[in-house]
Write a protein that binds this DNA or RNA. Structure first.
Lengths: 337, 337
DNA sequence: ATGAAAGCGCTAACAG
DNA sequence: CTGTTAGCGCTTTCAT
C-alpha cells in the first residue's frame, strides 16, 4: 500500500541514497541538484509517500518516543501532568507512550522493560517502589530517565518534585490560625517519602503552635480500596474523638471522599471543621470555601520533566556525555485560602 | 550495551536463526533440541538479552502499538476512557501512544499522520472535525481504526458511542418532573452531532411536557475559553430571565463552571434551580444533590473501543479480511438522581 | 536439528 | 552531483 524510498528510486531511476537525502531534508547539504530535488519531492507527493519511522529509528538509533509511567492516568493530578508532558514532547517532535502502573511494583517493572524493548529514548516515571534495583540498573546503563512526584534521595537521578514538607506546613498552619486545635491527618501510602514529608509538615505546624501531636488522629487508608475503607475509618475516628475540628488530607482524593462523607453525616460542615489539602480539585473549594490548598504546579512539573529528559536524550545522541550531571528540581506549590 | 541475537549466536557458535527460534518461543515447533534451547536461554539470561522490538516490528510488520487521539487527556472523561483503553491494550500485549488534539483539526491531522508513520497498528479517535477526508482516506487504505464519542453516521466505520438523545431526554425529564419549567441549556461545540443529539433530547423532554422551547435559553460557549465566557454569558442570561429555574448542561465541564458561578452569586442554589447534566463528576453530586446525571459508561467505552480495534488488527494480521464488516456500538448511560 | 541468505525500509560512509 | 554497499536487529524461506 504505502510506497517506500525504493519505489520512488526505481520509478525515477535514481538510487535510494539520493532519494533518502532529499526526502530527509538533506538535499542541499549533500549537493543534490535542485532539479533532482524537485523531481523527487514531486514524485513522492504523487506517490503519496510517507516515511516509515520504524525503519528510520532502527537505522538511526533514536525513536523520538518517550515512555511515561504513572500510577494511573485517570487520576486528575497525573492526567494534568501527562498533558503537560505530551505538549512539551510534541513541541520537540517526540511522542509518548503512557502506562499506568496501578501502583503495582511488578507491573511497573514489566512496563519499564517493555518500554526499553520498544526502544523508547527515555522514561519519565512516578515510581511506586520504595527501593528499586531497576532504577539503579537504568543508571548503570546510562538510560535517560527522570523521576517526578516521588524520587530516591540517595540515588543520583534527574527528578522533579515539590516542596512537600513546606506546603503541608503552610496549609496546616492556616487551619490552625483559624482556631482549630484538634486536626486529624488522613493519609495513604505512608512508605513513600513524599507522604513522610507531608506528615512532617503537618507535625511541624502543630508543634509550632504548641499543639500536641496525637497519634490517634493519624489515619492511613489503603488507596486501592479507599472508598469503603474511609467510611469505616472515619466513623470510628469521629465517634472516638467527636471534638475533632479539622482535617489535613495528603491527597486530593482523600479530601474528596472525606468531605463527601462529612456532608452526608454532619450539618454545618465548613463551620465545624477546618480543612487543608494537597493539590487542587476544581469543586472542592466551592464545597468547602474554608479549605486551604497547596496547589501543585502541574504544568511546570510536566514541562520540566519532559524538557530535562529531552535535553539529556539530545546530548546523549550528539555524543556529548556530561557524566552524572543530573538535575534535581524542587518546585513550589501555591497556597490558596 | 544491550546485546543482540547475533551476539548470542556468535558466542554460542550457533546461527542467528536458531537463537531467534528459541528466543521467540518457537523452539519446539521448529524442532530445536532441548539441550540447545536450554543453552540459548541460559546464555541469553546471562548476557541480559532483551529483544529489540523495533527490529521485530519492522520485520513482522506489526508494532503492537495503538494510537489514541482525544481532545485532551486532562479532561477527566477522556482520561477515564484512556485508562480503560490502556488496560484492555495491556491485556492483549499492546501499548498505546496518546495524543491530545486540543480540538484542533490541523493538529489532529498531523497526529494521525505521525502515528501512521510510526506504524501503529491501529487508531482510536474521538474526532474533532465535522467532515473528514483523512478518515475517508483511512477507510480507503483499510487502516484499522475505531471512533468513539463522536462519529460520522454516513461513513462505514467502527464506532462506540452512547445514546445521547435518550440520555439527555431522560435527565431533563426528571428536572421537569421536579416542577421546573424554565430550563436553560448550556452547551458547546454544537456543530458536533453528539451535541445536536443532546439538544434534541432536551427539546423532546420539554415538548413532551408542553413547555415551549425558548431559543433565548440556549447558551453556547466556546470550550477554549469557557471560564471567562461563561461568567459573562450567565450574568446576562440571568438578568434577562431571572425566572430561570433549571439548567441542563451538555458536558460536565459546563456544569462545574456554572454551578461554581451560581454558588458565588445566589443563595439556596439547589432550592432555586434544578440541574441535569451529562457525565458524572465526583463532587458535583455533593454540591447539588438534586442534580440528575446521565453517567457515561466510561470503562465500557474504552474497553469496547480497544477490543474492537485489536480484533480487527488481529484479523488483518492473519489475512482474514472480513470486508467492511464494521461494528457500531451504542452504549447506554445510567441515570442517577 | 541447524544454517545461509534475503528481506523489512531506512541511513551513511565511501567512491567516483 | 550521484551511486554502491553495508548495516540497524530481527524473521523466515529454503537448504542441508
Amino acid at each position: 500500500m504505502g510506497c517506500s524510498l525504493k519505489d520512488i528510486a526505481e520509478d525515477l531511476k535514481l538510487s535510494k541514497t539520493t532519494v533518502s537525502w532529499v526526502l530527509s531534508g538533506n538535499g542541499n547539504r549533500r549537493n543534490i541538484s535542485i532539479e533532482t530535488q524537485e523531481l523527487v519531492k514531486k514524485r513522492a507527493r504523487e506517490m503519496n509517500y510517507e516515511p516509515n519511522l520504524l525503519a528510520k529509528s532502527l537505522s538511526k538509533g533514536i525513536t523520538h518516543t518517550l515512555g511515561l509511567i504513572i500510577p494511573s492516568i485517570s487520576d486528575l493530578f497525573y492526567a494534568q501532568i501527562a498533558k503537560a508532558i505530551e505538549l512539551e514532547a510534541w513541541k520537540n517532535n517526540f511522542s509518548v507512550i503512557f502506562c499506568s502502573s496501578e501502583s503495582d511494583p511488578q507491573k511497573e517493572f514489566d512496563l519499564i522493560r517493555m518500554l526499553k524493548q520498544k526502544q523508547v529514548d527515555g522514561l519519565i516515571i512516578a515510581p511506586t517502589k520504595k527501593n528499586d534495583n531497576q532504577i539503579k540498573q537504568l543508571i548503570v546503563e546510562k538510560y535517560p530517565f527522570v523521576l517526578f512526584d516521588r524520587y530516591y534521595p540517595n540515588l543520583n537521578t534527574n527528578y522533579v518534585i515539590i516542596n512537600n514538607e513546606e506546603s503541608a506546613y503552610n496549609v496546616v498552619k492556616r487551619v490552625i490560625a483559624e482556631g482549630r486545635r484538634k486536626i486529624a491527618i488522613i493519609t495513604t501510602n505512608s512508605y513513600l517519602l513524599l507522604m513522610k514529608m507531608r506528615y512532617n509538615g503537618y507535625k511541624k505546624a502543630l508543634e509550632e503552635a504548641g499543639i500536641k501531636v496525637d497519634e490517634n488522629l493519624l489515619i492511613e487508608v489503603n488507596v486501592t480500596d479507599y472508598e469503603n475503607e474511609l467510611n469505616k475509618v472515619l466513623y470510628e475516628l469521629l465517634s472516638h474523638y467527636p471534638d475533632i475540628d479539622g482535617f489535613f488530607f495528603t491527597t486530593h482524593i482523600l479530601a474528596i471522599e472525606t468531605i463527601k462523607y462529612l456532608y452526608k453525616h454532619f450539618d454545618n460542615v465548613t463551620k465545624r471543621f477546618g480543612f487543608a489539602c494537597m493539590h487542587e480539585e476544581p469543586l472542592l473549594h466551592v464545597l468547602a470555601p474554608n479549605l486551604k490548598i497547596a496547589r501543585m504546579p502541574v504544568q511546570e512539573i510536566g514541562q520540566m520533566a519532559a524538557s530535562i529528559l529531552i535535553e539529556e536524550i539530545t546530548m546523549k545522541q550528539e555524543g556529548i556525555i556530561k557524566e552524572s550531571e543530573k538535575v534535581g528540581i524542587v518546585l513550589k506549590s501555591t497556597i490558596i485560602e
